[in-house]
Amino acid sequence: MNIVVCVKQVPESRDVEMDPETGNLKREGAAAVMNPFDLFALEAGLQLKERYGGTVTAITMGPPQAEEVIREAYMMGADDGMILCDREFAGADTLATSFTLAQGIRHLQAVDLIICGLQTTDGDTAQVGPGIAEFLDIPHETSIQKIHGMDEDGLRVEKDMGHVVMDLSLQLPTLISVAKGVNQPRLLSFRRKLQTRDWPARYLERSDLDDHKEAFFGLDGSPTQVEAMFPPQPHTASERWEGSSQELADRLVQLLVEEKFVQSGVDE
């Protein structure tokens, strides 16, 4: 089974503050790490490879320093790594990112399974995995909480749908995005760190890709544009309520309704 795992380098801390006067983001020496959700995706790929043979290739789109997450994937057990790196990829939204990664995966050929983390901690959209699957015209499922393995219908998995769980099989080739807790990611191996120190990571730029029309990549290929960024309105209320218990209860019920904390009577 030839498996591709999509990974991304993200800022370690989610704590980004914005200067309310200048609107500038304050980012104090934020270290970059592998997106935590991707550790589960890598572990899922490695476990399937151990059961069914084949290879695990880690792929990422990013600047040259994103090679660090490919090296981390090697240390966990990946066989190969690819970095899609080109200035023309800059400013990509989820559409352009999905397209670029799909092109990179197509370049690898004979891929049976693509695994993504559910979402990234910096973008939080969970959109890139399904986008890749559409570009490759293969089925996908998101929020996978359990991987049973192969059965006669394909890869058998459980999908978390909120209040219900779906037990299903996907024909290969396919793409899944895995939820936190689908497995226990292994630790990085120091021995593998030494073994893989000289392993190169393959770099691909736009001109290496099959479909490399400029308009599909980076900012040009991104329909969405960030118009502005501003600090959120913090929940600043600090009220002290006093009165009879009935008055307090009524005010609280009203608050819960106004703030939409009350279930509307239908299961999620």
Binding site: D15, V16, M18, G123, D124, T224, Q225, V226, M229, P231
Partner: peptide, 16 residues
């Protein structure tokens, strides 16, 4: 919300 809710981003899709 962006960056885990620390910043709000205003996004448009002007040409599509």
């Amino acid at each position: 919300p962006a960056f885990g809710g620390d910043v709000m981003a205003q996004i448009v899709t002007p040409q599509h």
